[in-house]
Design a protein around this nucleic acid. Structure first.
Lengths: 215, 215
DNA sequence: CCGAATCCTGGTAGATACTG
DNA sequence: CAGTATCTACCAGGATTCGG
């Protein structure tokens, strides 16, 4: 059930037939952080109509990009999860997100920042060449939510929620210190000194952080 | 005039607002091969309604992705051309095209193959690591159209039309020898021997070709 | 409460005709 | 050649409803 076809024998056309409809890419972005329930997805995409979310999930399942799975007994819930095939879209989402981030200065009126959009920004700004052979875990506390970054031998995995054993906890206190670190407009020393950030753990890991995540 | 907004402060959301509408990516794909007139674009995307093509070009121009330029006197024509900003989408299109190409076996009934879709397939299959330091030009004749590939010090540029000074001319005679070379289902020797391809120039460059372009 | 299905409305795309 | 105009069909947005 390829939604609407382009009539061209072309990989890009095929891709756009499968994931080019409105909302689909953002749903995949959110599922990249792990399995999510219908309600979780709706929380992360508050303005999507539920019937559209429902329809997109069905399409993703039919196209083999995601699976729908009923959790075992205690909490009888349904979770949606990307298949390997769906997860293979990550490089494309990163490339798109990186391009789109160029016009990302201030949130527009009414725009929200979700845990998943921040998770995405970690993926798009991650520089593997600055993380060669590195293994370290970060917990990033943003007030409304907490993210975990695990870099294992230079491979990044981003998740939502606390980190079980972080090498460094980075806690945002005021302003946008994380973005300032990533853009290079402030140094690790500066954000520590001006009180916009508080850390717990080895402070040297903040310097490494600002090298590995760069716009 | 960001078509319809997602309300999220996120690079991917911004990208999808700008280029996520139906047809937009394929128009950009076609413009990647160089400036094109309205009619050229319509030839390359025969099933797009002209009002939609018109609307998309206007949006691309307003968003700063493309420019509309009237050619000097003799042929009073209008050409559309990507800006640097628009051309920066190439990595994202390649990533999407590569992902979409996984389900690309046979053309579906009614699906056409255009010069631009083939140009795209050269971009998605190009392996820079197999072309380190290489400088060579190919002219690929497909019957209905001819493409030129110029690799300069490992950098690929794809265009439509003949190559001014090709190191090798690859002419398709029967079947799909180019795709078979790229997929590895046939060797350079085989496509030469079975008569599906004819070359002009240094035949050894066909081997190099099959190394640099691989699914 | 979770995960939708249903209904209605409005906007966007498709097809075709037409014009400077 | 390079679009605009018009009409229709479909898809998205929003609210409500419904079953487990």
């Amino acid at each position: 059930m390829a939604s609407r076809e382009y009539g061209q024998f072309c990989g890009l056309a095929r891709a756009m037939e499968m994931v080019g409809e409105r909302w689909t890419m953002l749903i995949i972005r959110n599922l990249l952080t792990g399995a999510q329930r219908f309600t979780d997805l709706h929380k992360g995409l508050p303005t999507i109509p539920t019937n559209i979310l429902s329809a997109r999930l069905k399409q993703l399942e039919e196209a083999g990009l995601a699976t729908r799975r009923a959790l075992p007994h205690p909490d009888r819930a349904v979770v949606y999860e990307l298949t390997d095939y769906g997860r293979d879209l990550e490089p494309a989402l990163i490339a798109l997100g990186r391009w789109g981030a160029r016009t990302l200065t201030e949130p527009r009126p009414g725009e929200i920042v979700t845990a998943e959009s921040i998770a995405m920004s970690f993926r798009t700004t991650y520089r593997p060449e600055a993380a060669r052979g590195v293994t370290v875990g970060y917990e990033v506390r943003m007030g409304d939510f907490t993210l975990r970054l695990q870099i294992t031998d230079g491979e990044l995995a981003v998740g939502i929620g606390p980190h079980p054993s972080p090498g460094l906890i980075i806690e945002r206190l005021t302003g946008y210190p994380i973005r300032e670190l990533m853009s290079g407009s402030k140094t690790p020393g500066e954000v520590l000194r001006d009180g916009s950030v508080r850390t717990e753990g080895d402070p040297a890991l903040l310097g490494r952080f600002s090298e590995m995540f760069r716009f």
